[in-house]
Design a protein around this nucleic acid. Structure first.
Length: 811
RNA sequence: GCCGCGGUGGCGGAACUGGUUUACGCGCACGACUUAAAAUCGUGUGGGAGAAAUCCCGUGUGGGUUCGAGUCCCACCCGCGGCACCA
């Protein structure tokens, strides 16, 4: 019979579904493994071959771990709130709920067609009220701990989607969803105080096993820098301006202060009427500020061109030497970092140098070593022109000058972060309603927990409003409510949560998906957490991954979860590019649809190929010929069956080098087992190919070796392995077999191929016993004809012998 | 600019702790089967010289350490990813 993947794959998928083979047990004495892949957004496009790569990889591990005797949780669910569904609903008039249901059906069908061993009894959906009840509950806890707050703030506004965007959703000044240029708008927003957790989010990275680049990316994103806040007294005033610097050692080189246009001192200056006469260039300043406000934050920061600024006609005093320092306003200073004010040290900062050159500010050297007439010297060095601190090295000077400022009450040590609080409200329909009531008398009132979930009203119209308010604002019946506190008239919050909300805690719900009393039973959480391996895309490193760690730490503080970190190990799969090495995209018409591959080559071929295509964490472009090769491998594996001699058969298996075969089998067990632990799927597959090739050379294949081969193959290609296993006469599923163990003694050989080098160059190779001594090795090497040729008239000066490897004769 | 990762055949990629560079797969060439093609199977396949044995050169570039370097050190070039006026 020929290998017919389509036929056998359907057969086994049905059988697996009817059995409970992949269900994780809550009460089990077995050790647990919790493996998780990022749950997808069920878009209308269906599954991408990139999803297949990640899901298959962890499916391979899940299957192997079950066979090793672990109680494995490998769950799947749907991150279904989000803008594309809402936009599609607007375009078609079909309700988001209906669209989501349909897309989930497609995704689920596709996943099953790949033979993925998800535990569907734990399926979750972020748009299900029984799920988002707990998302809302967590929000309430944030609110009660003052970690959720409202603030009027400039936000990235997408004029096309009519939605406010978090900084991370407006990448490069463009809307993440539609690509339109964003503008700045002032809007009252909900924020979550992720900055409160900044230190712990960095420090606890030491407790987990994440791929290195993931850690560094998170650390850079949080952007902690330790420095000094220094107060500059404004001349003829009691006011101070506080600046932040990491280079207190350059304080004596300050020749100006620059304030962001949003700085309160700038505003206060413009408000005072009689200042108008004092400040000569009042109109100029006003115009400058007006202009820079028009620019979006992106425009302001994007322009790497010249820095601009205006002198505002006031001075302050350098606390180090009481020198008069002119105050400027300039929009290259970021208002949200530090206090929106910087000290200008042209001699030792590139930007300041540029600014000083343009506006003819003084350039005062404070660190020796550079050519400040030409360019800024930014390295550390030895202080000059710095009074009593002259001669100190920068590192010491930073410390001493800061201490001195603290003593004088002109400064303090402080830490600044690049990380900002998380803008948590969206003016959209298809998200979790924020469970807050606005009461005229009582202000912001949290919805009582017993009233959760606040369900999203089922309506026909969900167009965004022109004012930028959420579509929910138009549903008067829903908005009007009673204040839970005073029972007076009140209005519901109409903003919804961002699509990152539901995914920030979903891994908890898998452990106890149907719990009505709490987000998940604590005992179950204790058994399953932390997640042993979490795989997902690199693009989520600074968003979802950071957000969910933040939520988890918060829940840990509430004692709702047992540990401070959700993920013990995190790994990211590489992107699968199209065959033309570009990103797969409908517009390029280069998208590979997994359905078509399953149809043409079968799920097992697709799975094997995606594991074999290259290192798991590396970007790889699709190759239909590579797929073909994997397909051939499975076909050969299928045909090996006809050569298998059953155990009962009396035909004696005659194999030359029987020990070699035994050794190869055990080597393969070792290689596959170890490679899987290290997520080296590609080399694991290649070792299976080597074993298959060797078995193929035999006239007859011993049953027990073929069985081991099938077991090793089964996590990668489950359908074909099950089918062949059954054909061997086995009644139970191959996945109930224990994972084979290798015998170290059988891998070891008594002889080895000894490399003979002369002056480090390979000149001969011979078989030699491993027990060879250095002296024997030398003699053996010198007795070889090929070596004699090289040794004519010479004796080795030095002999290097590495037992089990080589001997090197130096002449 | 800063941070991280990488550069090995015609291609995707192997290579333990410094010890045979190119496993496995693709492609290509030749051969077998076939009326023929596809499929399949077999053999070969880093470059150069040679009839062959064999020799020389080869892991981005230049230097260094070492008996020996893809692997370690220094400098540089190129590619990818992230951050980007963060003071």
């Amino acid at each position: 019979m020929k290998y017919n993947p389509q036929k056998i794959e359907k057969k086994w998928q049905k059988r697996w579904k009817d059995s409970n083979l992949y269900q994780a047990k809550d009460k089990s004495k077995k050790p647990k493994k919790y493996l998780m892949v990022e749950f997808p957004y069920p878009s209308g496009d269906g599954l991408h071959v990139g999803h297949v790569r990640s899901y298959t990889a962890l499916d391979v591990l899940a299957r192997k771990k079950r066979m090793e005797g672990y109680n494995v949780l490998y769950p799947m669910g749907w991150d279904a709130f989000g803008l594309p569904t809402e936009n599609y609903a607007l375009a078609t008039g079909i309700h988001p709920i209906k669209i989501t249901e349909k897309n989930i059906r497609i995704f689920k069908r596709q996943m099953n067609s790949l033979g993925l061993s998800f535990d569907w009894s734990r399926e979750i959906n972020t748009t299900d009220p029984s799920y988002y009840k707990w998302t809302q509950w967590i929000f309430l806890q944030f609110f009660k701990k003052d970690l959720a707050y409202q603030r009027e703030m400039p936000i990235n506004w997408c004029p096309k989607c009519k939605i406010g965007l978090a900084n991370e959703e407006a990448i490069g000044g463009r809307c993440e969803r539609c690509g339109a240029q964003t503008e700045m708008r002032l809007k009252k927003q909900w924020l979550l105080k992720i900055t409160e957790y900044a230190d712990r989010l960095i420090d606890d990275l030491g407790k987990v096993n994440y791929a290195g680049k993931i850690k560094t990316q998170q650390i850079n994103w949080i952007g902690r820098s330790e420095g000094t806040a220094i107060k500059f007294k404004i001349q003829n005033s009691k006011q101070y301006i506080e600046i932040f610097t990491t280079r207190a050692d350059t304080l004596f080189g300050v020749t100006a202060l620059v304030l962001a246009p949003e700085h309160p001192f700038v505003a206060s200056l413009l408000k005072i009427k009689n200042q108008k006469s004092k400040i000569k260039n009042y109109e100029e300043i006003k115009k400058y500020i007006k202009n820079s406000k028009k620019k979006s934050e992106f425009e302001r920061t994007q322009l790497e061109k010249e820095k601009t600024g205006v002198f505002i006609g006031a001075y302050c005093l350098n606390p180090a030497n009481n020198e008069k320092v002119p105050i400027w306003v300039g929009d290259y200073v970021i208002s949200t970092y530090g206090d929106g004010a910087v000290m200008v040290v042209p001699a030792h900062d590139k930007r300041d140098y540029q600014f000083a050159k343009k506006y003819n500010l003084k350039i005062k050297e404070a660190i020796k070593g550079g050519y400040i007439s030409k360019e800024a010297y930014v390295d550390y060095g030895v202080l000059i022109n710095s009074g009593r601190f002259n001669g100190l090295k920068s590192e010491q000077a930073i410390k001493k000058i800061t201490d001195w400022l603290i003593e004088k009450k002109s400064g303090k040590r402080t830490i600044q972060y690049k990380l900002r609080d998380w803008i948590f409200s969206r003016q959209h329909y298809w998200g979790e309603p924020i469970p807050i009531v606005h009461c005229e008398k009582c202000g912001l009132v949290p919805v009582p927990e017993k009233d959760l979930p606040i369900k999203l009203p089922y309506v026909k119209k969900y167009e965004p409003t022109e004012t930028g308010e959420s579509p929910l604002a138009k549903i008067e019946k829903w908005v009007k409510t009673k204040c839970p506190k005073c029972q007076g008239p009140a209005k519901r919050e109409t903003d919804t949560m961002p699509n990152w909300a539901g995914s920030s805690w979903y891994f908890l719900r898998y452990t106890d998906p149907k719990n009505k009393k709490t987000l998940a039973d604590f005992e179950k959480l204790k058994y399953w957490l932390p997640i042993d391996l979490y795989n997902g895309g690199m693009e989520h490193t600074t968003l979802h991954l950071l957000y969910s760690r933040f939520w988890h730490k918060f829940l840990y503080d509430l004692k709702a979860v047992p540990g401070p970190e959700p993920y013990e190990r995190r790994y990211s799969h590489g992107v699968v590019l199209a065959e033309d090495k570009r990103k797969m995209s409908k517009s390029f018409k280069n998208v590979i649809n997994p359905d078509e591959i399953v149809k043409s080559h079968g799920a097992d071929s697709l799975r094997i190929y995606e594991m074999f295509m290259g290192p798991f964490d590396q970007t790889i472009s699709w190759s239909s010929q590579g797929l073909q090769g994997c397909s051939r491998f499975l076909k050969r594996a299928w045909e090996l069956k006809s050569k298998v001699k059953s155990q009962k058969s009396k035909v004696k298996v005659k194999i030359q080098n029987y020990n070699d075969l035994e050794r190869l089998v055990h080597q393969t067990i070792k290689k596959v087992s170890e490679d899987l632990e290290n997520l080296k799927f590609n080399t694991a597959v290649s070792s299976l190919m080597i074993l298959a090739n060797t078995l193929g050379e035999l006239k007859e294949i011993p049953n027990r070796y073929y069985k081991i081969f099938l077991i090793l193959l089964s996590p990668f290609a489950p359908h074909i392995s099950e089918e062949l296993w059954e054909k061997l006469g086995n009644k139970k599923s191959i996945f109930l077999e224990p994972w084979p163990k290798y015998d170290f003694k059988l891998i070891e050989t008594e002889t080895f191929q000894m490399i003979i080098q002369v002056n480090g160059r390979v000149r001969d190779k011979i078989e030699a016993p491993k027990s060879l001594s250095e002296k024997e090795a030398k003699e053996l090497a010198l007795s070889q004809e090929k070596i004699k040729k090289w040794m004519v008239g010479q004796t080795p000066k030095k002999v290097i012998y590495i037992p089990g490897r080589l001997v090197n004769l130096v002449i």
